[in-house]
Structures are given as C-alpha cells and as structure tokens.
Design a protein around this nucleic acid. Sequence first.
DNA 1: GTAACTGCAAAATATTTGCATCCTT
DNA 2: AAGGATGCAAATATTTTGCAGTTAC
Lengths: 138, 138
Amino acid sequence: MQNRIADLLKKNQLSITDSRKKILELFQNAGGALAHSDIEKMSGEHFDRVTIYRTLQTFVEKGIIHTIPTVDNSVLYALCKDECSAGHHHDNHVHFICDDCGTTYCLDHVLIPKVELPLGFTEKQTDLVVSGTCKNCN
Amino acid sequence: MQNRIADLLKKNQLSITDSRKKILELFQNAGGALAHSDIEKMSGEHFDRVTIYRTLQTFVEKGIIHTIPTVDNSVLYALCKDECSAGHHHDNHVHFICDDCGTTYCLDHVLIPKVELPLGFTEKQTDLVVSGTCKNCN
DNA sequence: GTAACTGCAAAATATTTGCATCCTT
DNA sequence: AAGGATGCAAATATTTTGCAGTTAC
C-alpha cells in the first residue's frame, strides 16, 4: 500500500516526501474528489498551505490527479484512474453535476467526443459538463 | 431589442438600471459565455467591480443566467436557454474561448454530441467549452 | 554534495460586507 | 417618499512569489 504510493511518485520522477505521501494517502482513502480546503483540514494543520498548493499543482502537471469543475467557485481534485504519461494528461471524460445535491461525478467511462473546430482554431482543453439530477436525487 | 432586455428584467421583478441593462447587453452581443473579468473589461471601467459581482449573483438567482464550471479556476456565465433564444437559438452548440485574447466564440455549426449517462442520471443542460487559440491569435 | 522540497513572510488577486448616497418606481 | 441598487472603503479569502533553511537521493 505504502509501496504503491512510493512507486507512483518514483514513476513520475518526484522525490518521496512526507507531504506528498500524506496527500496521496488522503486521496486514496477518500476514494473521490477533494478540495484544497479538505486536504488542509484532513492533514491536520500539519502542512503549510503553500506546500499543499504546490503539491497539488505538481500532481496535476504529472497527471497523477486532475481537476474537476464545480458549480460553486471551488476547485476539486481527484486521482486519475488510468496512468497517464507524465506531462501529457488529457482529462477527457465527462463530469456530471447534480443540481439538487451539488455533488460532482466523474463519469470515467463517458468520453468527450472529438469536436471539429473551424479552420484556424486550436484546441488546448475541452470541458464537457452535464448538469441535472443524479441517481441519488432522482 | 432594448425592450427585450427591459422586459426580461421586469419579468423578474428587478429594477431597470444601467448596469443591469449593460451587462445583459454584453451577454446578448457575446452570444456565449463570459467571465467576470470579461464583463469588467468590456464594460469599460464603467461599473464597479462589486456591482458586477452583485449583478451576476442576482441574475443567477433569478435564473436569467447560469454558471458554466470549467476545470481551471474560472467561472463562466451564460444566458439561460429560455432567454437566449429570441433571434438565435444558442442551445446546443459549442463555445470556444481563446486563451490569448479572451474572446468567446459561438461555434454555431459545431453541435454538442449526445452523451449517454449512466442509469439514474437525468440531463438538464450540457455545456461544452473548448479553450485554446482562436483564428486571430494563431 | 546537489538539486529538489518545504515553510515562512509577504505580495498579488479575488470576493464579500457595511454603509452612505443615488436612482427607480 | 420608500425601497432597492450602486459606489466606495475596508474586511476576508484565495493564490502566487521570493528566499532561506531542510531533506531526499
């Protein structure tokens, strides 16, 4: 278990440090999405705010986690299901936001179809967000 | 045209003020999604930052506009379906936002593909936002 | 030992709130 | 005239940056 975390860091050419191990562990235990503030609380004031910002940013760059959109102004992070090649992670699955309970779901198996852009337009990122009612609120 | 805007405000029991008229006009002209910062720029320093915050919040509460979440930290706003119809139907097409110049394009001929949701999920609205570089900045 | 990472301080941004004044109705 | 909306100032909250000290390898 601990080895999986260490391996993941090693595979991405990151030094194995306490904060990184701890934050990855939080994600694995949570099993879902976490906000920056969640991590801050759960890590028990152990780590500096700034360290968390930088750690999350590093993880996103390496493709270990990805950000998911929310209706309120917060940014959520979640572990990437598939292992992506470092640096070139494409977050190409659909997100679903429930209007009732506000939960955000990663629909990992629903892929964003390739959109064909007019001439001269270059795609860098595509977000497909569906809102409506989730299975629990229906 | 101007009447449509006034009617919309009236219908929602809102006083007809300059800032509200101007902001609604911006949305109609843009034909797509706008960020708070876009509105601030486009309104030409005419309105207070705070007024824009409060106006957008009011519009969201009244259901005149809705937020479109994106994976980066920005929140986009767009006119709700029912209201943005009149001349055009801005319903099911893709929005493109240029990272360089910040312009939002309505790609009217690029339709959002139907996404298949897991059982129990009900779709109410789908937003597909592509970001990258537009034809002018490329 | 060296490069990378962390923590602290502080700067830069973004958002919210209180209140006096002005505008819409 | 009355209630709501705006603008200003200031309080909060969030994110970024610089740098010195510490740690992983």
